[in-house]
């Protein structure tokens, strides 16, 4: 996959994220029931988007960094 496509997908995902956690989309996930792994749905919904954001950033970073010859990963 090329980088331009991944960038567009990333922008799309974060726009969707913004829409998903605000009105009106968030109102479909506003109730506490059902509990998901013991947590209320209204809390699981924004947490799920944090995880989606993390995965998207990992994928984006993989492709952005993929064509660099040396992978400089030195930690301090």
């Amino acid at each position: 996959m090329n980088r331009t496509l991944i960038r567009r997908i990333a922008i799309g995902v974060f726009l969707l994220n913004a829409l998903a956690v605000t009105w009106p989309l968030a109102s479909f996930f506003k109730s506490a029931k059902p509990l998901v792994f013991g947590f209320p749905l209204s809390m699981v919904w924004p947490v799920a988007w944090i995880v989606v954001g993390l995965v998207m950033l990992l994928v984006l970073d993989h492709f952005e960094n993929g064509n660099q010859a040396e992978n400089r990963d030195e930690d301090q």
Partner: peptide
Amino acid sequence: YILSYGVL
């Protein structure tokens, strides 16, 4: 709302 804005 605090959960929602950080990553965005």
